[in-house]
Amino acid sequence: MAKTSHDLVVEAKSKIKEVSVVDAREMIQSGAVVLDVREPGEFENGHVPGAINVPRGLLEFKLAATPELNQPDTPIVVYCKTSGRSALAVATLADMGVTNTVNMGGGYDAWAEAGYPTDKPPAIDYN
């Protein structure tokens, strides 16, 4: 029987480390790289300050070209909207040899709900 997307996320989460937004924030404040794997439009609507945006669908292809993701001693906090795509991303990164990664449980929604700071690029004024 074929696996569903839910099955894949559950399987990924069984193989990776997931941390709370409280722990993720502490890691970020201590110098962890922040990777947002949502789509660019989602990122533009608000993101964790300092986050690098590499959409989940491009991660495998952009990994080598993103120096921040290739520092073995620097932890990486990965998130998406609610933590499904980021769980898959963390599992993929591990398969590609990037092992100092964690998934932020609850994703951006939990981060924003906790009242933590978010960045939103200013609207472009074409006048």
Score class of each variant (00 low, 15 high):
V22I: 14
R85N: 03
A114I: 07
E68C: 06
L8T: 10
V90T: 08
K3T: 09
D73Y: 12
R38L: 00
F61K: 14
K81Q: 13
Q71W: 11
P55G: 03
R25Q: 15
I124N: 09
T118R: 00
E18S: 15
L58W: 11
V34Y: 06
A94D: 12
L93T: 02
T118H: 04
A87G: 08
V98H: 11
S5D: 13
V48T: 02
P117V: 00
G97M: 08
G57Q: 12
L58Q: 09
L35E: 00
A64K: 09
A123M: 07
V21L: 07
L63E: 02
P117M: 00
S20Q: 06
G115D: 06
P67G: 11
T92N: 14
N70C: 13
M96Y: 10
P67N: 15
A112F: 05
A24H: 03
A110C: 11
D119T: 11
N45V: 04
P121C: 01
A12Q: 05
N70L: 14
P117F: 00
D36W: 01
P117Y: 06
G41R: 04
L63W: 05
K3G: 02
W111I: 07
F43I: 03
D36Q: 09
A12S: 04
T4S: 15
V37N: 07
K3L: 13
G46N: 04
A64V: 06
A12L: 05
M104Y: 12
A87M: 05
S30V: 10
P75K: 10
T92M: 15
G31S: 04
A112H: 02
D36A: 07
A32P: 02
T92G: 13
F43T: 00
V22S: 13
V9Q: 01
E113D: 15
K13L: 01
V37Y: 02
R85H: 03
A123I: 05
H6T: 15
P72F: 01
K17F: 10
A94F: 10
G107I: 03
G46Y: 05
I52L: 08
D36S: 08
H47L: 08
M96V: 07
E113H: 13
Y126E: 11
L88C: 03
P40M: 04
Y126H: 09
V78L: 05
N70K: 14
V34W: 06
A12V: 02
L69W: 12
P117A: 00
M96N: 08
P121R: 01
A64N: 09
G46H: 02
E39Y: 07
L58S: 06
M96W: 10
T74R: 15
C80F: 05
M27A: 03
A2I: 15
D23R: 14
A12D: 00
V78T: 11
M27I: 02
A2P: 15
T92Q: 15
K120G: 01
N53A: 08
Y108Q: 06
P67R: 11
P40D: 07
A2W: 13
A91H: 06
P40K: 05
V21I: 14
L93V: 07
V10Y: 12
D73T: 13
V102H: 01
S14G: 10
E42Q: 12
E18C: 07
E44I: 03
G115Y: 00
A64C: 01
V10S: 11
A12G: 01
A12M: 06
K15V: 08
L88A: 05
E60F: 10
L88W: 06
I124E: 11
L58H: 10
V78K: 03
D36V: 09
V90E: 08
D7K: 05
D7T: 01
Y79H: 15
L69M: 13
A32L: 04
